[in-house]
Amino acid sequence: MPPPVFRFAPSPNGYLHLGHALSALLNAEAVRAAGGRMLLRIEDIDVTRCRPEYEAAIYEELAWLGIQWERPVRRQSEHFADYSAALQRLEAMGLVYPSFESRAEIAALVAAREPWPRDPDGAPLYPGSAKSMGPDERAQRMASGAPYALRLDMEKALARVTGNLAWSESGDCATGEIAADPAAWGDVVLARKDTPASYHLAVVVDDALQGITDVVRGLDLFHATSVHRLLQALFGLPAPRYRHHRLILDADGRKLSKSTAATALRELRAQGLTPSDIRRRVGLD
């Protein structure tokens, strides 16, 4: 029986912090316990925010923590064709449509209709009328160069799936078979005019192509697994086992984030902390 395959998949849009360290270390421990394989994926699909120096720092800091991974590393920016092919499959099923409202326009539509349903991350479900737009008007708007987002028609997608959607969970907030609820996300974005794939689409494609059997990641992605299970079902892909682990929070109770300038591992390392110190700080004595 082949060994289980795990992956750590950071984005090089900032330096790694303690939250990343916890996830990487938990993956490495799971690999050792299961006699599995450890893959590293660089999720650099957002080429405007990702930088070579951040990617170089990822390799350096993971090695400093004592984490080993297989080569070559999969870099999303080198595999746009894979995401395009997956999107075309969904389009051929009639499950994708373009919407043209900006985020500000969507916010205004929602404000006029409050209370309005929101997804598990707190964003409003898509309120626009693009789904009913005729094919000629869609093509004309796209050909004109107007910005657009390609959305999954959730109602049609769910109609194509037989049986109940669920996933196997062994994480910090739940265990066992978890019922998926992709409808809670509404018509999620799968790609944009200038971005070949959303996180949802790219992670499903990458996990399948890399043969990932076990996904160990933060609790902030627990509910997103519902969308991933739906896409896996639509593509006829196997579902990995999932473990969503606790998050490292700041003094205000918020998860650590690059966007909020969370203290980077490189800064802690410069202060003289050792890998053992990092393990203790993330609660892995």
Rank of each mutant, 00 (worst) to 15 (best):
G94T: 09
H17T: 04
L221G: 10
P52S: 14
M38S: 11
A251Y: 00
E169S: 12
P3C: 02
A261V: 00
Y148W: 14
I106Y: 02
M1S: 12
D82F: 06
A233H: 09
A179I: 15
S276Y: 04
R281N: 03
A157I: 03
T274S: 15
F222K: 13
S129F: 06
S11M: 04
K156H: 12
L247E: 05
L95R: 04
L90N: 02
L201P: 03
L90D: 02
A180D: 04
A264K: 08
L221T: 05
R279G: 05
H223I: 00
L152H: 12
R269Y: 04
R71Y: 05
V216W: 06
A123L: 15
I178R: 12
D121K: 06
C173E: 06
L219A: 10
T175N: 08
A166H: 14
R141L: 15
V161P: 01
G186L: 06
Q271V: 03
A33V: 10
A143E: 13
P4H: 00
S11N: 12
P98I: 08
W116G: 05
Y15E: 01
L256E: 10
R74V: 14
L230T: 14
A179C: 11
H244D: 13
D277Y: 01
H223G: 00
T195S: 14
R71K: 07
I106G: 03
L152P: 06
D119R: 04
S102E: 08
S144D: 01
C173S: 10
L219W: 05
I178N: 11
V188F: 11
G66W: 02
G218N: 03
A202G: 09
E91H: 04
W64G: 07
T260K: 12
V110F: 11
A143S: 11
I58E: 09
M154F: 03
H228V: 08
A24T: 06
I278K: 06
R138M: 10
P4V: 00
P124W: 04
A104K: 10
D285W: 07
H245A: 06
L201M: 05
D250C: 00
E114M: 08
L18S: 14
R254V: 00
D285N: 09
R243N: 13
T48D: 14
G14K: 04
W185V: 02
A63V: 03
S99P: 00
A81D: 15
S11R: 05
W69S: 04
Y148M: 01
R229V: 12
R37Y: 02
F8Y: 13
A24G: 08
S170M: 12
T162F: 00
F6H: 15
W116F: 13
Q210V: 02
E60P: 03
T48K: 12
H200A: 11
E91V: 08
R279F: 03
R32M: 10
R41P: 07
L256N: 14
E105M: 01
L25I: 14
I178S: 08
A239Q: 11
K193A: 15
T225I: 01
A261H: 14
H200Q: 14
R141Y: 09
R281M: 13
A202L: 13
Q88S: 13
H79N: 09
W185Q: 06
G272W: 01
L219S: 06
E169T: 14
G283R: 10
L25W: 10
R138H: 14
